[in-house]
Design a protein around this nucleic acid. Structure first.
Lengths: 142, 142
DNA sequence: GGATAATCATCAGGTTTCCTGTTGTTGATA
DNA sequence: TATCAACAACAGGAAACCTGATGATTATCC
């Protein structure tokens, strides 16, 4: 009986999170919080609601994470002058330092994971994952 | 700046979980609990500790899930006569019914996710994911 | 222009899923 | 036999999710 692709993805993600938790032990942030930081590192000035949509969770759930990151002085928040409802989030210097500090071990984890795959296989894997992500986003659960 | 493979996997898993939560709404089980049931469906008679290792979590964490499933009468537990420390877990008829009930919508979710990919691409994706899983298991965090 | 709808942030309260740490029992090993 | 490893379980706590509701602001439609 062939295990499903859904299960295979979950398995890899579980393994990655386990290794990531280990890498981040002592950093003061969880794997989920670290991921939110990396998203902000790539796209500064997002709102909590945008971050939530990016992670397929409710805004209330993302608020927990944002609150923790702000308390740790890793992010800062400011009103959007163009839309007073919005509060834009940016990394602080402290937040950028943390990203920089763990960039290397996280890259090494990815290298270890793909060790044994060819460059072509890695490229195809990335392509297929992006395809799956896009397809599921186009047909949202609600 | 290229998003990492680790991030791509997390994104797909988040999207899958979101859709799975939606499918399972009304089932009485969570996505995590459902996944544990599918593992037992494929390999009956596992212990809680074995399930935990399979999911890269501590035995104490898996105990929460197993307790919930037993309370819902979806699994049953019995002592292993060959090793009295162990308690083997099996699906009940009720548990098998639940798996059967949601098998079709879950398969459809997987089909939707891979819509647009060729059979070869899907095969390669499965192969690469299994490779990543195995590589990370061979180099455990602890 | 004004009513209606959508969006954002937030409060309250609750559940699930993870953790550390500890203990007692049993099986494996030296 | 003595030691060590594995399993299950208890206690307690934190993180990350949820539903439901509210007020403020912006967007849309007649």
């Amino acid at each position: 009986m062939e295990p499903s692709l859904l299960y295979a993805i979950k398995q890899v993600e579980l393994a990655v999170r386990s290794h990531l938790d280990d890498i981040l032990k002592g950093s003061g942030v969880t794997a989920v919080q670290y991921t939110a930081l990396t998203v902000l590192h790539r796209r500064d000035g997002l709102t909590s609601a945008q971050l939530a949509r990016n992670s397929f969770v409710k805004t209330q759930s993302m608020a927990d994470i944002v609150t923790a990151l702000e308390k740790a002085r890793l992010i800062s928040r400011r009103r959007d002058p163009a839309d007073v409802r919005r509060i834009l989030i940016s990394l602080t210097d402290h937040g950028r330092d943390l990203i920089a500090q763990y960039d290397d071990p996280v890259r090494k984890l990815e290298a270890r994971m793909t060790d044994g795959l060819t460059a072509t296989q890695i490229r195809d894997l990335r392509h297929s994952l992006n395809h799956c992500r896009a397809t599921l986003s186009d047909h949202p659960p609600h």
